[in-house]
Design a protein around this nucleic acid. Structure first.
Length: 354
DNA sequence: GTTCTAGAAC
DNA sequence: GTTCTAGAAC
């Protein structure tokens, strides 16, 4: 059956609020250990004891032991540099069978920020994500019509009684997230938003391919360029205006040039306008696909998309566009071919503003 | 989309 | 031997 739910979020929550919830972003590893974040002072626990990674689409978390002393899942020691998964019901002990955490699947939306969002009058229905709950595959997040609170869940049986400050719960919210839906999650996250109005929101690209790289997204869910029609022209013009504003407020706008456009065949769902500075000076630019997606006709200028929409009532992508990603690496300024990405990056420095 | 890694390229 | 990429896995 169908239900409105928040997009999946993964939080590391201290049960007694001894430390603030730590959000685990899908596929972005989080390192955890002794330190102010966990309030753990035990020297046996490394400052980088474990690396946690949330796999939203499959509904589990992987833990890698980085520290020397044993991290364990239930009573099985992970072992240094080894990696195991934590599934619902299992307990993670950061070190020496101490500092237990628990994996828990929930559709809980009672976290302060989400609760505020849900009750804010301006929150419009289309800002909620409609998704199907797959009951058999996801037993822990099923049929609760009412929001259940974390504190309502009975604590797991304990052999040894840790002090109250040691108790924490690893909360995994939702499970129907897939990497291609990541923009829908990010655009709803106030921490990611750098601008918003009644029609659009701007976020920083999570893996910027240049010094400045923003994404302008409409609140209205438009899956891709293919779904665009004449009625969207005004929206797209607004997106471009907002993109131009982002450039204007950029402290380096005077020395960098920018391009505004769309990927002809984007990987991520939900129409998004790239606003990207043309330095391409970023450690996240790593391969041929990255380069060619911004420097060939794979990158379609915003104004061209708008013109096409005004002229034809729809946006079409030329045949063979996907092959553009495999073209040799060519400098976008002097058009000199470069043999490898590292050589290209070295070459690009010669075009940087001095 | 990113990460990881085998094996190609050097 | 190291660097780098392409494709699989996620």
């Amino acid at each position: 059956r169908w239900r409105y739910v928040e997009m999946p979020v993964c939080l590391l929550v201290s049960e007694d609020d001894s430390h603030k919830p730590i959000q685990l972003h899908p596929q972005q590893p989080v390192t955890l250990g002794r330190g102010p974040q966990t309030k753990i002072k035990d020297k046996k626990c490394s400052r980088e004891q474990v690396e946690l990674r949330a796999d939203c689409s499959r509904g589990f978390i992987t833990v890698k032991q980085l520290g020397v002393n044993p991290t364990s899942v239930d009573d099985v020691v992970v072992g240094k540099d080894n990696q195991v998964t934590i599934k619902p019901g299992q307990r993670l002990y950061l070190v020496n069978q101490q500092y237990p955490y628990r994996v828990k699947f929930t559709e809980d939306t009672s976290t302060p920020r989400s609760a505020a969002d849900l009750t804010t009058p301006s929150k419009r229905p289309h800002q909620m994500i409609r998704e199907k709950i797959k009951s058999p595959a996801n037993p822990a997040s099923t049929p609760h019509t009412d929001h259940h609170r974390m504190s309502d869940d009975s604590p797991p049986p304990k052999k040894t009684l840790p002090s109250e400050s040691d108790k924490s719960i690893l909360v995994f919210q939702g499970s129907a997230g897939h990497w291609s839906q990541g923009l829908k999650v990010s655009m709803q996250d106030p921490k990611m938003q750098v601008y918003k109005d009644d029609r659009v929101v701007v976020i920083k690209d999570k893996y910027p391919k240049a010094r400045y790289h923003w994404l302008v997204l409409p609140w209205d869910s438009i899956s891709s360029l293919k779904a665009l029609r004449s009625e969207h022209v005004e929206l797209l013009k607004h997106m471009q205006r907002v993109g131009d504003q982002m450039v204007q407020q950029c402290p380096d706008a005077h020395k960098l040039s920018f391009r505004l456009g769309y990927h002809a065949i984007p990987s991520m769902s939900h129409v998004h306008l790239h606003v990207i500075s043309q330095d391409f000076d970023s450690p996240c630019l790593k391969n041929k696909k990255h380069w060619n997606s911004f420097t060939t006709d794979y990158f379609v200028e915003s104004q061209d998309v708008i013109a096409m929409l005004e002229h034809d009532g729809k946006v079409t992508v030329k045949d063979g566009t996907s092959e553009l990603l495999k073209l040799p690496l060519r400098c976008c300024f002097c058009h000199k071919e470069q043999p490898t990405i590292p050589k290209l990056k070295e070459h690009l420095k010669t075009h940087l503003p001095s």
